[in-house]
Design a protein around this nucleic acid. Structure first.
Length: 270
DNA sequence: GTGCGACTCGCCACAAGTGG
DNA sequence: CCACTTGTGGCGAGTCGCAC
């Protein structure tokens, strides 16, 4: 038992409010906390906000003064910052107007460049119109594109076809650079490749989120994930992009490369 | 090591050509 | 006429070689 009471900041899992509580033992803080948050003492416990470490009477004396604690009732769990990040991310399942407004407000008041950048990136990510498909639903997305493109899927399908046709055109200019003995074989392979690509509409479905599962490289919502360099199994940086979300992402997507016969996507040029 | 220009690459928009 | 295909020029980013 401590001589001097220890002060801690206490919050309950589902409460946005924090209270200062002082106690000479873990049990005392728990009792006061349960009283404050109107929670049952039986089955409840305390843990560190920081990393979720559960408090015991032995550990209690080494807890820093003014440490932030979380009061958990039976069945509840807390994993530290990770839990807060998880709750934060869950807000992105359905970006709400409130979230965008709150971010804009924070950005207005923010002076630190690093936090400005984080908020601007956040705003960029929540201000997207992924579900919209037609020009009427999302006019900014189509800014700068020819009027004949009326749907996002249609444009991206065209974009993919166009890329693959340009690869083919480039290869078609190579016969003069190979030796005479290999030219006949080169032209035969090229002809076969040309025919095959034409029969599958130059694999335009790769970029079309409306295409059947096996035919596209994205999710039904339009998310593409970098599949890493040719000599690796995956992208270590876990890059992803949704060119359907907004105009900036559509333009940025053009710097992603299409590689390999299987249509592997690589982030960034080169 | 740095700065600079030339070059390459991959994409885009646009215009012209082609076929139904 | 319209949709699709092909060719071209321009742009931005990256790379290379060279001089200092």
């Amino acid at each position: 038992m401590l001589q001097k009471p220890k002060s801690v900041k206490l919050r309950a899992l589902r409460s946005p409010r924090k209270f200062g509580v002082a106690g000479r033992s873990c049990q005392e803080v728990l009792r006061k906390g349960c009283l404050r948050f109107q929670l049952p003492e039986r089955g409840s416990r305390l843990c560190l906000y920081e990393d979720g470490t559960e408090l015991t009477e032995d550990y209690f004396p080494s807890v820093a003064d003014n440490a932030e604690l979380v009061l958990l009732t039976s069945g509840q769990a807390w994993q530290g910052y990770v839990s807060d990040i998880g709750r934060f991310l869950s807000a992105f399942h359905e970006p709400q107007v409130g979230l965008i407004q709150a971010t804009q407000q924070l950005l207005c008041d923010e002076q630190a460049p690093q936090r400005q950048r984080l908020l601007a990136d956040l705003l960029h990510n929540v201000s997207q119109n992924i579900a919209a498909e037609t020009r009427a639903e999302d006019p900014p997305w189509f800014e700068g594109l020819e009027s004949r493109f009326q749907s996002k899927s249609g444009y991206l399908r065209y974009s993919c076809e166009s890329r693959i046709r340009s690869y083919l055109r480039e290869v078609s200019s190579y016969p003069s650079t190979v030796g005479a003995e290999a030219q006949e074989e080169f032209l035969r392979v090229l002809g076969s490749m040309c025919q095959k690509l034409r029969s599958v509409q130059y694999n335009g479905s790769y970029f079309d989120r409306g295409a059947k599962g096996g035919g596209r490289l994205c999710t039904p919502e339009g998310w593409f994930s970098c599949q890493g360099p040719f000599d690796m199994d995956s992208c270590l940086s876990r890059h992803s992009i949704n060119p359907y979300s907004n105009r900036e992402s559509r333009i940025l997507f053009s710097t992603w490369n299409l590689d390999h016969i299987d249509g592997v996507l690589l982030c960034g040029p080169g």
